[in-house]
C-alpha cells in the first residue's frame, strides 16, 4: 500500500468515526444546493436516457440529483432509491472499479479519484467532485453524512458463501437481468442466454482463486437446464432453487 493511500485511509477513518455521530454539527450554511431535480421510475430517461435501462432492470424507484456547493467547492450528488438493499448494492456493484479505501466507512463504499460511491440501506449514493485531492474526499464523506441522516441502515442479505468475503466492494456483484449481466459478468452471458427471472451473486477470486457464482432461479426448468450445461466439476452445490458454481 503506498503512503498516500495509507494517509487517505487514516483521514477517512477519523472523519467517519467522528462524523456520523455529529451530523448536526456540520455547518449548514456552508452547503448550498444550486440545483435539485427528482426523477421517478421511467422518467429516469430524462436524466440519463439509454443509461436508465440498467437501473430500471433493478426496479429503480427514484433519483434525487443535486448540484451543491460545499465549503466553496462544487459537488454532484446522485441519490438513487432502489426497492431493496440488495438492489441498491447491485447497481452500486456494477459501478465499482479500481476502488481505493474500500468499505472504510462502516458501509459499502468505494473511492475513485473523482467520485465516492456508497450504499446505505436501499439507497445508492454517488458523489462526484472536481479534484482528486484528499480534502474533496473528506468533504464528500461529510456530504454523505448529511444526506444519509436518518436512513435505515439494513444491509443486503448475502448468500452464506459470499458473506465471509471482506472487503466486499469491487469483489462482489449482484445481478438481476441481461444488461447487468453484460456489464457485470460478461463471461456468463452465453451460459445464461435464455434464462430469465434470476438473482445472481458473483464473487471474484474466491476459493481456489476461481470466481464463484450463486444463482437463484424461480423456474425449475431453468435450474435443470443449467445443471445439465455446467460441467459437474464446476458445481459446488445445489438446492431446490439455487446452484452454486465456479467459473
Amino acid at each position: 500500500m503506498d503512503f498516500n493511500l495509507k494517509i487517505n485511509k487514516i483521514v477517512l477513518l477519523i472523519v467517519t468515526l467522528t462524523l456520523f455521530k455529529s451530523v448536526d454539527s456540520l455547518c449548514a450554511q456552508e452547503l448550498q444546493v444550486t440545483r435539485e431535480r427528482t426523477f421517478t421510475g421511467t422518467a429516469l430517461y430524462g436524466f440519463m436516457n439509454g443509461g436508465s435501462d440498467l437501473y430500471l432492470e433493478y426496479d429503480f424507484k427514484e433519483l434525487r440529483a443535486l448540484e451543491v456547493t460545499y465549503k466553496g467547492e462544487q459537488y454532484t450528488i446522485e441519490i438513487y432509491k432502489m426497492p431493496t438493499p440488495e438492489d441498491a448494492f447491485g447497481i452500486y456493484s456494477l459501478h465499482t472499479f479500481r476502488c481505493s479505501c474500500v468499505d472504510t466507512l462502516s458501509m459499502f463504499n468505494c473511492f475513485s479519484p473523482y467520485q465516492m460511491q456508497a450504499v446505505i440501506g436501499d439507497i445508492y449514493f454517488s458523489i462526484v467532485y472536481e479534484n482528486s485531492a484528499v480534502r474533496f474526499k473528506k468533504e464528500a464523506v461529510e456530504l454523505l453524512a448529511i444526506y444519509s441522516k436518518g436512513l435505515e441502515r439494513r444491509e443486503p442479505t448475502f448468500p452464506a458463501e459470499i458473506s465471509t468475503i471482506n472487503p466486499v466492494s469491487g469483489r462482489v456483484k449482484y445481478i438481476r437481468g441481461k444488461l447487468a449481466l453484460v456489464n457485470g459478468a460478461p463471461g456468463l452471458c452465453s451460459l445464461l442466454e435464455g434464462v430469465s427471472d434470476y438473482k445472481l451473486w458473483v464473487a471474484e477470486k474466491g476459493l481456489n482463486n476461481r470466481n464463484l457464482a450463486v444463482i437463484y432461479l424461480k423456474n425449475s426448468n431453468h435450474l435443470t437446464l443449467l445443471k445439465d450445461i455446467l460441467p459437474a466439476s464446476s458445481i459446488v452445490s445445489c438446492d431446490e432453487d439455487c446452484i452454486r458454481f465456479e467459473f
Binding site: 440519463m48 436516457n49 439509454g50 443509461g51 459501478h95 475513485s112 479519484p113 467520485q115 462526484v128
Partner: peptide, 11 residues
C-alpha cells in the same frame, strides 16, 4: 470505456 452511455468518472 465503461459506464457509458452515462458518465461515470472512474471510467
Amino acid at each position: 470505456f465503461d459506464g457509458g452511455p452515462s458518465a461515470k468518472p472512474q471510467f
